[in-house]
């Protein structure tokens, strides 16, 4: 086996895994505080990419596009929390999940109405030349994406550690009942979390949009995030990162080394097989909280 080729595949896999982590983090933020698996995260991602691209195509400068899209994502996130989820508080998880499924179609429909259905190219101004680092070829774009993801995670950590709202978030995530009986302002925390999820969707949307082109199938990247969440645990940001890296690496390595035995094309489904196998061994994921219930 050629070691430098192996390293190249591995690094490529890890970097594409970062892209999965980006999507998964959006899920984790909301799941941790409200126990909702937000299926609309993919549509949010699509909506942000589409809005940004359409604004740019109408001649707005890059930063204006970012700011307007960010404002829109913040508003949408806050709106979903207020209008859809808050009235459904205390409903079973499946109800909440179905609600977010409905929301995802509303958002996609709204995106279609606003911006039309054609595919857009999104150029973030990073040329995707392979970069040679000590004999291993690495995609510049992937490196950039990893850098952005790292910065975003750092900002989230600062937010959770050093703001009052962040402390409230950690409190709610640790014990929702205690937070409720203390009278913490769950509404403010909920709004903040959905806002944060909207921002994460923006970052992920731009990077994925630049990678795949901005089109409606972009919302299907949520399906890529599911095995990551199963692996890393639904309620751990660290889990989302590690899970994403593992899934990315597994996909690429499996495609290259096992793929030929199946006639190739296993990259599309091997992640789910890995997740399924993992579920049997560790249902709570690598970093997820184990549910122990006293009976």
């Amino acid at each position: 086996m050629d070691l430098s080729f192996f390293t190249e595949v591995l690094v490529g896999g890890l970097l594409s895994g970062v892209m999965y982590s980006l999507v998964a983090i959006g899920f984790v933020l909301i799941y941790k505080t409200s126990g909702v698996l937000n299926f609309a995260q993919g549509s949010l991602l699509l909506f942000s990419a589409l809005t940004f691209v359409s604004l740019i195509e109408r001649g707005l400068p890059f930063w204006a596009g970012i700011l307007i899209t960010l404002a829109a994502m913040t508003a949408i996130g806050a709106l979903i929390e207020r209008v859809v989820l808050r009235p459904l508080v205390n409903q079973p998880p499946i109800t909440l999940f179905m609600a977010t499924l409905g929301v995802s179609y509303v958002i996609e429909g709204a995106a279609q109405l606003l911006w039309g259905t054609q595919v857009h190219g999104l150029d973030l101004g990073i040329d995707d030349r392979p970069l040679e680092i000590s004999g291993v070829f690495v995609s510049t774009f992937d490196l950039f994406a990893a850098g952005v993801a790292g910065a975003m995670v750092a900002v989230l950590i600062l937010f959770f550690r050093y703001t009052g709202i962040g402390l409230g978030f950690r409190a709610v995530a640790d014990d929702p009942l205690a937070a409720l009986s203390l009278g913490l302002r769950l509404d403010r925390i909920g709004t903040a979390v959905w806002t944060a999820a909207g921002m994460v969707a923006l970052v992920a949307g731009l990077l994925w949009g630049a990678r795949l082109g901005v089109q409606f199938s972009l919302s299907l990247v949520v399906l890529k995030a599911l095995p990551v969440l199963v692996l890393g645990g639904f309620d751990s940001i660290a889990g989302a990162i590690v899970g994403g890296l593992i899934i990315g690496a597994v996909e690429k390595l499996a495609e290259v080394y096992i793929g030929p035995f199946f006639g190739g094309g296993i990259e599309g489904w091997i992640a789910y097989v890995a997740a399924l196998g993992f579920l049997l061994v560790r249902p709570a994921g690598l970093f997820g909280q184990k549910l122990v219930e006293r009976v």
Binding site: T163, I165, L167, A171, T191
Partner: peptide, 27 residues
């Protein structure tokens, strides 16, 4: 009604969370 996964300091600081006047974005 304590937050078992949070530090002692954080648990006590939660008691001051209501008093914050600064908005989410200011924070």
């Amino acid at each position: 009604a304590l937050f078992k996964g949070l530090s002692v300091l954080d648990n006590v600081a939660v008691g001051l969370n209501h008093g914050f006047r600064a908005g989410v974005f200011a924070q």
